[in-house]
Design a binder for these strands. Structure first.
Lengths: 101, 101
DNA sequence: AATATATTTCTAGTAATATCGAAATATATT
DNA sequence: AATATATTTCGATATTACTAGAAATATATT
């Protein structure tokens, strides 16, 4: 993953409401969670919630799909695991002190 | 880890310069990397670099220790792994579709 | 004590983000 | 077609963050 994309994604996770949304989605699994369910469990005005969801969508961490009147949000696990990998990449590669281990 | 602390930490990682600093430190290992080395490899004005480092310090992702004239920055691996764990916690716990697997 | 090196603090201008009510859109039901 | 439900877009205000030059601080060397 490119540094810029990773930074953008972390920035979106770096807000307590959005992080809460995303964790709710991660727990919810691949079938997704309706916006309305997020709204009632997070207790945030609809316009604010919509704003935060669309930011998560804009960086690829969430996708939405409609079924009838309800709109589902699904976390993108590949992007999530990519971010996690990005943080640990080459961890300690340049560490001194145990060069022959 | 609390939601608020995790969000703050992600917010600090959500800036390309800071993410680059942090990754440099993660690769560098536990002995730390001098500020000056960061400055020359990232090519950013000292005052700007200092500002970003102090933000990483303020959320506990980095600590500094001085040796003579040079100040070393060390990544806090425990906080890093805590963040990673936080993102995956209860992953898919509420997923439907494979309840007996 | 004077000078050099390493890094931070101060300051201030500019830009980006957060919030939420009101109005708008999309779909379903009657 | 009228109404209800679900969600978004618009708009405006308030707060926070980014950047970097200049000055200040801390330590080392001569």
């Amino acid at each position: 993953m490119l540094l810029e994309s990773a930074a953008k994604r972390f920035a979106e996770l770096g807000h307590s409401t959005r992080l809460e949304i995303f964790r709710h989605l991660v727990r919810g699994g691949r079938q997704g969670v309706p916006v309305g369910e997020l709204q009632s469990s997070l207790d945030v005005p609809g316009s604010t919630l919509s704003h935060h969801i669309s930011r998560l969508v804009s960086v690829g961490l969430v996708v939405q799909h409609r079924e009838g009147r309800t709109l589902y949000c699904r976390p993108q696990y590949d992007e999530l695991f990519g971010l996690i990998e990005f943080l640990q990449e080459e961890c300690c590669a340049n560490e001194r002190g145990h060069p022959q281990e």
